[in-house]
Write a protein that binds this DNA or RNA. Structure first.
Lengths: 140, 140
DNA sequence: GCTGATAGTAAACTAAATTTACTACATGTC
DNA sequence: GACATGTAGTAAATTTAGTTTACTATCAGC
């Protein structure tokens, strides 16, 4: 069943990311925080957009951002005077946040390498293309 | 990035399962409950094994089972006299639980059909084989 | 029949998501 | 330019979920 396979694969990836963060010293990050670091990361994005990206509510995202702000990973800046929308507060990564994002990227690159080594580059590329195609189809 | 693709795909599958359950009238089931119905389902299994399958703790699984028991989806039976282990209480689906499991299976079959239609049978089969291979590799 | 380990359970606590509700700003209408 | 309506962001209160801690019953080895 494709459901079980996708579940297993994703849970494995998530567990590896969390382990990698732990190993790199980011011991205060927990699973829900990963929603914020989701590609392409929160830098410059608005809370509402991050919420949509993570398929959660603005309120839940707001709590995550507050938590990450207290832990020193992100900050929310008031809209600049020349900004188009005076309501929009952009999220920015702190230096610590940038390092955490890099640690996540490192783990993902390792995982990609492991899959490519195991499946072969072309087969791996085909899987990614297929998943991408299904994502496109889902968004219609 | 394979991480983002797997996350997106799995979250989509999970959302479709929950929608399908809602539509079929199982409105009291929530996302965590799906861990229990995970392939091959809880019928006859022991709580500890279900916990391991869902990669969670025995305690968390116990709470899920209690919740599902209160909602009338499963029941936990005392070990029979002839059972090998007097500590082991097996989980069993009620008729309602069986119907819910069938509803989940229906959604999954629909999803499989949609993927196969979109990607072609052989390409879809190849993806499943690859994911299966990675699962095998992860369990070493 | 002790001893240490395992299966199951649950209360208490902590973490996370949802519901509800509010403020500030934006946009369109008259 | 005043007013109505909608949107972005925020947060308290509540509900839901998971972890920590701790207990009982059974088992397996000696």
């Amino acid at each position: 069943m494709i459901g079980a396979l996708l579940r297993y694969a994703w849970q494995g990836v998530r567990a590896q990311i969390l382990d990698g963060l732990q190993a790199a010293g980011f011991t205060d990050l927990r699973a829900p925080h990963l929603d914020v670091f989701q590609h392409p990361g929160p830098e410059g994005a608005r809370p509402g957009d991050l919420a949509e990206r993570a398929r959660t509510t603005k309120q839940a995202m707001n709590q995550l951002l507050r938590s990450l702000e207290e832990l020193g990973y992100v900050e929310r800046r008031s809209p600049s005077a020349k900004s188009a929308d005076g309501r929009a507060r952009a999220v920015h990564l702190t230096p610590r946040g940038v390092r955490a994002a890099a640690a996540i990227r490192d783990v993902l690159l390792e995982i990609e390498a492991a899959w490519a080594a195991r499946l072969g580059a072309s087969r791996f590329a085909d899987i990614k293309a297929a998943l991408e195609e299904m994502r496109g189809a889902a968004e219609r």
